[in-house]
Computed example of a mutant assay.
Amino acid sequence: MATLNDSLLSGASGKLDGYVIYRVGKKTYMRKLAENVSNPRTDGQTMQRAKLPGAQTMYRAMRDGMLKDVLDVAAREEERRSGYHWFLHANMNVFGKEHYIDYSRLELTAGSLQLPFEMKMIEGDETYALFSWIDNSGSVTAQATDRLLVAAIFDDEPYSPVVLEMDRSCRGDGAGVVNLPEGTWKTVHLYCFFASETERRYSPCRYFSISKS
């Protein structure tokens, strides 16, 4: 790119012999036009195109629920344009061709709250899941009153995350249980996260899964 302020083309605009001339403010610039791409569908571009529809489909399924609010908070904390842009940035590589989704790497939530220590699922079947953890409350990013929430994706609705209804369990309790609904599903992907008492801050999520026997 060249600056043309001292040339006869200063103040001009348009195309000339493979170059484009344009103005920004009071300055005139000239740059070479991009060459035509002989193969715009490279393997990398094709893979990227396959990822985007899956990510967009899942985000649309979250737009009317609590998870949209969680993503909007994450976007503000990380100074991203929107929860939509945060979700695409975090999860584009989770999706692939032929409806492939790596659920274990999916990030449905994020935020400045900490997850508790050593969170694990100690029991689980097609009716419920029981989680335990070590209470790490005592700081601004981890309060005993932070509430456990569980989002789920069922394999018969693979693009539709939902937050499950459950009794109140807090960080200070050290354990929590969520009941699973009946249905035609065979596998459920669970994402445990915490919300502050005011539900203005959230934590990242921890992944678990249950398959019917």
Rank of each mutant, 00 (worst) to 15 (best):
A144V: 11
E157F: 09
G172H: 08
S7E: 00
G172A: 11
F87V: 03
E126Y: 09
Q48N: 13
V20H: 03
T198M: 09
I134D: 14
G25K: 04
L130Y: 09
R60D: 11
K68R: 11
M1K: 06
P116L: 10
G18C: 05
L180R: 08
R147S: 12
Y84P: 01
E107R: 15
Y19D: 00
L106A: 07
P204V: 07
R147I: 14
Y59M: 06
G25V: 05
A110V: 00
R63T: 09
Y159N: 14
D156S: 09
E78M: 14
L148R: 06
V24K: 13
F208H: 07
S203N: 07
V150I: 03
Q56E: 09
W86V: 04
E35G: 03
K68P: 00
S10N: 14
R76P: 01
K32L: 08
G138D: 13
A90F: 02
I21S: 03
L33F: 00
D17R: 13
T42E: 06
T141D: 15
S38K: 15
A61R: 13
Y191D: 05
L130S: 01
Y128R: 13
L67R: 00
L115S: 12
V24A: 11
F208C: 06
I153K: 09
S112R: 15
N5T: 04
C192E: 10
A61K: 15
Q48R: 14
R147D: 12
E165R: 08
V70T: 07
L9G: 00
Y159C: 08
L108R: 06
A152F: 10
Q56W: 00
W86R: 06
L88A: 01
A142E: 10
P40H: 10
V73T: 15
S139H: 13
L164R: 04
V163C: 04
H99S: 15
A74T: 10
H89Q: 10
N5E: 12
K15G: 01
A61I: 03
D125F: 06
Y159M: 15
N136Q: 13
P181V: 09
A34D: 06
M58P: 08
P40E: 05
D155E: 05
V178H: 09
Q143P: 00
A144Q: 10
A12R: 10
S137G: 12
L71Y: 00
R147W: 01
E199L: 01
D167Y: 01
Y207V: 08
W185T: 09
R76C: 10
C205M: 05
G25Q: 07
K186N: 14
G96H: 10
R23G: 10
K26D: 07
S160W: 13
S112N: 14
N93C: 02
R105W: 01
I134G: 05
Q48T: 14
A12T: 12
N179G: 04
G11C: 06
F87G: 11
N136S: 15
L190D: 12
R168T: 13
V188W: 11
